[in-house]
Deep mutational scan, measured.
Amino acid sequence: VTLFVALYDYEARTEDDLSAHKGEKFQILNSSEGDWWEARSLTTGETGYIPSNYVAPV
């Protein structure tokens, strides 16, 4: 399991995006899409895309 933590708040801009709150942890499901990674929030269980530069490894 690849875990990352949000460094900043991010507000989803499309229905495919996933909002993130600073300190929230995510499981990365797919990081092969360049700057946008598919992730699952460990807080809400929701999945979507987050900007890779907004997260760091735990």
Rank of each mutant, 00 (worst) to 15 (best):
R40A: 06
V1P: 12
E11Q: 12
S32Q: 12
L42Y: 06
I28D: 01
K25N: 07
L29E: 05
H21G: 05
E46R: 14
E11G: 05
T14N: 14
L3M: 10
T2K: 11
L7Y: 03
V55D: 01
E38L: 15
V58K: 01
E11S: 10
E15D: 12
S41H: 04
P57F: 06
A39G: 05
K25Y: 15
R40T: 14
L3A: 05
E11Y: 09
A56P: 02
T14I: 05
D9E: 06
I50F: 03
A56F: 09
D17G: 15
Y10L: 07
N30E: 07
T47H: 07
A20I: 15
G23T: 02
E15Q: 12
D17M: 13
R40V: 13
D35G: 11
D17T: 14
L42M: 13
H21T: 13
S41V: 02
N53S: 14
Q27T: 09
S31C: 15
L18G: 01
A56Y: 09
S19T: 10
D17V: 12
T14E: 08
S31L: 10
N53K: 14
S52W: 11
V5W: 06
V1N: 12
F26G: 00
V1A: 12
E38F: 15
S31Y: 12
T43N: 08
E38Y: 15
V55Q: 00
A56T: 11
V1S: 13
G48C: 07
P51Q: 06
D35Q: 09
V58C: 10
T43Y: 08
V5Y: 12
A20M: 15
G23W: 05
F26W: 04
T2L: 13
R13I: 10
E15A: 13
V55S: 00
D9S: 06
D9N: 08
D9P: 06
N30T: 08
E33C: 15
S41D: 04
L29C: 09
T2W: 13
E46H: 11
S52I: 07
E46Y: 09
Y10A: 02
V1K: 11
N53G: 11
E46M: 14
Y54S: 13
L3G: 03
T44L: 01
S52G: 07
Q27P: 02
G45K: 03
W36V: 09
D9F: 05
N53E: 10
P57H: 06
P51T: 03
P57W: 05
T14Y: 14
F4C: 08
L18V: 07
A12S: 10
F4N: 01
L18F: 04
E38C: 15
L3S: 07
S19V: 06
F26S: 00
D16V: 12
S31R: 13
W37S: 02
G45H: 05
T14M: 10
R13D: 06
T47Y: 08
A6P: 00
I50T: 02
N30M: 07
I28K: 03
D16R: 15
F4W: 15
N30H: 07
N53M: 12
K22C: 08
G45W: 07
W37I: 07
S19N: 10
T2Q: 13
L29M: 07
S19R: 07
Y10I: 11
Y10C: 07
Y8M: 11
D35H: 11
Y49C: 11
W36R: 15
A6S: 05
T14W: 12
S32C: 13
A6G: 02
E15P: 14
A6Q: 02
A56W: 09
Y10Q: 00
A56E: 09
L7E: 03
K25D: 01
V55F: 14
A39W: 04
D35M: 10
Y10W: 15
L18S: 01
D17A: 14
L29W: 06
G45P: 00
Y8N: 06
S19W: 05
D9T: 06
N53Q: 11
L7H: 02
E46P: 00
T43C: 12
K22T: 09
D17S: 13
T44G: 02
T14S: 14
T47I: 14
Y8A: 09
E24T: 03
N53A: 14
P57A: 10
V58Y: 12
Q27A: 10
E46F: 10
I50A: 01
G45M: 06
A6I: 05
A6F: 08
T14A: 11
E33I: 12
H21C: 12
T47A: 06
A6R: 00
D9K: 05
N30W: 07
E33K: 14
W36E: 04
V5S: 02
Y54I: 15
W37V: 08
H21D: 04
E33H: 14
E11V: 14
L29D: 04
E24D: 10
P57E: 08
E15H: 11
G34W: 09
K22P: 05
V55T: 03
V55W: 03
I50P: 02
Y49A: 04
T47G: 02
W36L: 11
T44I: 01
F4E: 00
V58I: 13
N53P: 05
T44Q: 02
T47K: 09
P51S: 05
N53F: 11
A12I: 03
V1H: 13
E46T: 07
E24S: 02
T2M: 13
V58A: 09
Y10H: 04
W36P: 05
E24P: 01
G45E: 04
S32L: 12
S19A: 07
G23C: 08
A39F: 15
Y8E: 08
Y54D: 02
D17I: 08
T43H: 11
L18N: 01
E24V: 01
N30V: 08
L29T: 06
E33Y: 11
A20V: 15
H21K: 15
K22Y: 06
R40F: 10
I28G: 03
K25S: 06
T14G: 15
V1Q: 12
D9G: 04
K25I: 15
Y54G: 08
A20R: 00
Y8P: 00
D17K: 14
P51F: 07
L18T: 01
Y8V: 07
N30A: 08
A56S: 09
E11T: 12
G34T: 12
G45Y: 05
N53V: 10
Y49V: 06
A56G: 08
E38R: 09
A56K: 09
A6V: 06
N53I: 11
S32A: 11
T47R: 10
F26D: 01
T2A: 10
L42F: 06
K25L: 15
T2S: 11
E24Q: 05
A12T: 04
D16C: 15
Y54R: 07
L3Q: 07
G48V: 04
F4P: 00
E11M: 10
A39H: 02
L18Q: 02
Q27C: 13
P57Q: 08
Q27R: 06
L42V: 10
I28M: 05
R40C: 10
Y10R: 04
K22S: 05
S31Q: 14
E11R: 08
R13A: 12
F4R: 00
R13L: 10
Y8C: 14
S31K: 13
K22V: 13
D35P: 09
D9L: 05
T14V: 06
Q27F: 14
P51M: 06
D35S: 08
E11I: 13
V1I: 13
H21I: 12
E11A: 10
S32R: 10
W36Y: 14
G45Q: 05
Y54F: 12
V58M: 11
R40L: 13
D16I: 13
G48F: 05
P51K: 07
K25P: 05
G48P: 00
G23K: 01
A39L: 10
I28S: 01
H21E: 08
S31I: 12
S31A: 13
P57R: 05
S52Q: 07
H21L: 10
V1F: 14
G23V: 02
A20N: 01
E15I: 10
L29N: 04
W37G: 00
F26C: 02
S31G: 09
P51G: 04
S41K: 08
W37T: 03
A39R: 00
F26E: 01
A56N: 04
P51R: 06
Y10K: 00
T14K: 13
A39Y: 08
T2H: 11
L42A: 05
Y10E: 01
T47W: 09
L18Y: 03
G34L: 11
S52C: 13
S41G: 02
V55N: 01
R40D: 04
L7K: 04
